[in-house]
Amino acid sequence: MTNSSSSIIVECLQVATVVFLAPLFTGWVRLLKCRAQARTSAGLLQPYRDIYKLFFKEVALAENASWIFRFTPYMVFGATVMAGAIIPVISTRAPLSATADIIALVAIFALARFFSALAGMDAGTAFGGMGSSREMMVASLAEPAMLMSVFTISLVNRSTSLSQMTHVIVNSPIMLRPSLAFALLAFALIAIAETGRIPVDNPATHLELTMIHEAMCLEFSGRHLALIEWAKGIKLLLFASLGIALFAPWGMATGGTLQSLVISYVTLTAKLAVIGVAIVLIETRLAKMRIFRVPEFLGAAFLLATLGMLSYFMLE
């Protein structure tokens, strides 16, 4: 809730970073994945080209698609960008960070998902409905685990405000905390489920029976698809940044000085690069699960988060 011109500049910088670097992160993950699977990659900048190309393509709307379908891409994009303004990515003192704590942040993502699920059902095909139904199932089972993980972190930091949580971790001595380790593991599993990565969902598949998120977005085309894809990229980046902010925020700027911002960017890039490698390692090593194994996967996330909470009380 601080209002100074420098913090507003930082905020704008952060939103711009999140929005315009997200395709780069997606490109990085794809590039690594191609290398890991001994394929030739389309290059780091391919997501930009894809999005750019889609903006100039014709939009094909299903005959009975309503305004919900046309509004959804904008809504999803808008909500995701707002989330990008809330999560501390380059500075712990971004002024919009205080507008929502982590519970409200989760709800903002849920808002975007609510509209995507509606849009999936709007065209009136079987696939859209299938995607919506599955996506909502994954989301509804991820929620308790997410809350438990948040609870554990908030026990340690005595706050659910994102900037405050980040601030506490940056300013406290490094300790071995089993509770945070468990919460991190749980968070990683939830992030995989929420961003639709292997082993929960395969972002590259268009095979009917295995799609979750893609089935829901199957009917989008042209600029709508561009926005959806872009928002998806931003979401991936945001979950990575959220993980960084909650568990390893070291190096993040706490003020608005130029020097600290530069350091912040350098560390952020390094951390994101590492996360990209981790994603690729998981995605190449594991196979996609059957859809009804997902509840067990998320159950494991819940278990880990609960163990984190328990070990806070029992061991710390």
């Binding site: 071995l176 089993p178 067990e296 494991a300 163990l307 061991l315 710390e316």
Partner: peptide
């Protein structure tokens, strides 16, 4: 202090492995 911390962490890991046995 560090010994206590490491020991707690190991205890947490032992708990994790117990659950691992339970669900594997």
């Amino acid at each position: 202090e560090l010994a206590i911390e490491i020991n707690s962490l190991l205890a947490a890991l032992i708990l994790l492995t117990s659950f691992g046995l339970l669900v594997q």
